[in-house]
Design a protein around this nucleic acid. Structure first.
Lengths: 163, 163
DNA sequence: CGGCTTCCCATTGACGCCCATATGGTCCCA
DNA sequence: TGGGACCATATGGGCGTCAATGGGAAGCCG
């Protein structure tokens, strides 16, 4: 375990790639509603000393974002910029604090797939983990592939135009 | 004051996101009109040594805010900032001081759902606890979901613009 | 005296913690 | 170069503990 950990730290220092959430993987949800977080993602979590996970619904896609406390604090800084009694800050807190969920991994590196995740992402039996550099996301497998192909198509037209 | 502040900072580093009211949970109201406060919320209350709860109506949403004495003080500071003879301060004082209610939890961590809460939030059989970082709120379940989806829709267009 | 509240105890269902198994991949050695 | 041992990951399941809920009994104020 710690051998892997320190190895990843070394690799991260050398290659500068292993220290962020990258690529995607699909795992099955067992009868108790648990799913294994991909080992590369767990390695990143360990490297960043993240033991408490903060989950939030994505604002545009039917996916749930998962990250460390810094993910929450990033949103909170944005809220703090507004007037604390304004309706805007109120609504934003409703999303970030009321919609956010705190989670932990079990000893094997699994997380519970709650109805909160199931309903919002449309997940039933399988779940796709998608790296997003500083956090990762939970997707319904097919929805992820569709969104990715759609993004690729849109990106092609976008890249064709001179930036 | 600063001791408390730095203590909170330290606890924040240690416990991460566990030291604030986060996420939401829906519980049932029993025949006696009681409802269990979610254990994570009770843990935050215990950590902050809050034994006396102060409740008041949210200024925007049909929900009741619940927090410690500091919640009342925060609203009083907001009132103090305004002109004491202004209509806004007058109306706010009417809400905060006239509409506020003190409450206590029983030995099992439950609170009585009074008519004050029922009428304002439209609650009947179930109640949704919504974390708000430094306090939490009581919602009618469906009203919460609707308000959240509405807030997300508004926020999505807002997030499309660069911050 | 009656309704309402507060304290106490019982139940049960969910979740966390633990151990066991399988499967796929890698490395070593013949 | 092919076989085999080894390892890590993913997955399955048992069990204990705790939280949510229900209900009874005693206390308080009308």
């Amino acid at each position: 375990m710690w051998g892997v950990f320190s190895l990843c730290v070394m690799m991260g220092r050398v290659f500068g790639v292993m220290n962020r959430f990258l690529s995607n993987a699909t795992n099955r949800i067992d009868a108790k509603g648990r799913v294994s977080v991909p080992a590369p993602f767990r390695a990143v979590l360990a490297q960043r000393n993240i033991q408490e996970l903060y989950c939030l619904q994505d604002l545009v896609f039917p996916a749930v974002s998962v990250g460390g406390p810094d993910l929450l604090e990033r949103y909170e800084r944005q809220i703090a910029q507004a007037d604390p009694f304004s309706p805007e800050a109120n609504a934003m807190s409703l999303l970030v604090h009321g919609g956010g969920v705190y989670m932990r991994l079990d000893a094997e590196g699994r997380l519970m797939v709650t109805d909160f995740i199931r309903d919002f992402a449309g997940i039933t039996t399988e779940i796709t983990f998608v790296g997003r550099s500083d956090h990762f996301q939970l997707w319904q497998p097919q929805a992820f592939h569709e969104a990715q192909t759609a993004a690729r198509a849109g990106r092609a037209t976008f890249a064709a135009r001179p930036a």
